[in-house]
């Protein structure tokens, strides 16, 4: 136990672990968002959870009450629901609806901070950029161990997300790839979608402390996208996304130390390196595509049959 404690007492280890957990929690959910073509909802949610956090703060006066998670989840769902209402009114298209809802909610949150929470440590820079560098200073006791509070929070959130994906794998897969069939078979794809987005909101709150709102978006979208270029199987995409997230956390921390820059920013930027690698080596990447073009294989059998089969 003392060995583990000694390990956890190193700030670097804690920071990398938190970054990796944010990355894993985010990219597990992100894989489904990317496949459902709802990636930009994570951007919207990551902005508008701020209003949930601010309202929870104004209600309780505390900066880290469990109400934060509830408030954030509700704010995230409010964003999704308002966007849905706008789209279904058929007066604006879905992209514009997203772009109308989240800036309005975010603006309200910023103004609430302007007016009511001026002196509190809830400044908007911290929300956007995160302060993972100081996360190891705030510790809680768990049994014999002293663990950083963010590390514990992110561990719980990651386990919840993992359980969600593992236990609802079949439902998620069906709702993502064939919502019609899911409905016909008696599943509730809409419900699964809302649950997914609620978890995205909760994860966004957990990630706020660590990497900030917008860098969270990088962890949601980029690792699954990189994995999407490499594989055709959903479970492989999930695993690869998590690996990319962990790798980005480690690599980003090293880069941040080397250049003395924002740790969260460096971690998020590093996901881009993995995307670049996927573009080059992935079987759906740019290079593979260019190679396929240069060496055309035999035409697909259906074409050949049609050519030789004559008129039907």
């Amino acid at each position: 136990m003392t060995g583990l404690q000694g390990w956890l007492d190193q700030p670097g280890v804690t920071i990398v672990l938190i970054g990796a957990l944010v990355g894993v929690a985010a990219s597990l959910l992100g894989a489904f968002l990317v496949l459902r073509r709802e990636s930009m909802l994570s951007d919207a949610i990551s902005h508008s959870v701020l209003i949930g956090i601010v309202l929870a703060y104004l209600l309780t006066g505390a900066l880290d009450s469990p109400l934060h998670v509830v408030g954030a989840a509700l704010a995230g769902l409010l964003t999704v629901w308002l966007t849905d209402v706008l789209v279904r009114s058929r007066r604006v298209k879905s992209d514009a609806a997203i772009g109308l809802v989240f800036p309005a909610l975010f603006a309200v949150a910023v103004l609430l901070i302007n007016v009511y929470a001026r002196d509190v440590h809830l400044d908007t820079d911290a929300v956007l950029l995160g302060e993972i560098g100081f996360a190891w200073l705030d510790v809680v006791r768990v049994g014999p161990l002293e663990v950083a509070r963010s590390l514990l929070t992110m561990l719980v959130i990651t386990l919840v997300n993992l359980a969600f994906v593992v236990f609802l794998y079949k439902e998620l897969k069906l709702a993502t790839f064939d919502a019609m069939l899911a409905t016909a078979l008696g599943f509730r794809p809409g419900l699964v979608g809302y649950a997914l987005l609620a978890l995205v909101s909760v994860t966004a709150v957990g990630a706020f402390d660590a990497v900030g709102a917008i860098l969270f978006v990088a962890f949601v979208i980029v690792p699954p996208t990189a994995a999407y270029l490499v594989t055709d199987r959903l479970w492989r995409m999930l695993v690869l996304g998590c690996l990319v997230a962990v790798g980005s956390s480690v690599g980003g921390y090293a880069l941040a130390l080397a250049f003395d820059v924002s740790i969260g920013g460096a971690m998020a930027s590093t996901t881009g390196v993995f995307l670049l690698v996927a573009l080059i080596v992935g079987k759906h990447g740019i290079v593979a595509r260019a190679l396929r073009r240069r060496t055309p294989g035999p035409p697909p059998s259906i074409l050949r049959e049609r050519e030789t089969g004559g008129a039907p």
């Binding site: 951007d43 956007l128 950029l129 900030g212 917008i214 860098l215 978006v217 990088a218 979208i221 980029v222 941040a256 250049f259 820059v261 924002s262 969260g264 920013g265 460096a266 998020a268 930027s269 996901t271 881009g272 995307l275």
Partner: peptide, 9 residues
């Protein structure tokens, strides 16, 4: 997100 991340760096 990548451009913004690089921007914060």
């Amino acid at each position: 997100s990548l451009f913004f991340a690089f921007g914060t760096v």
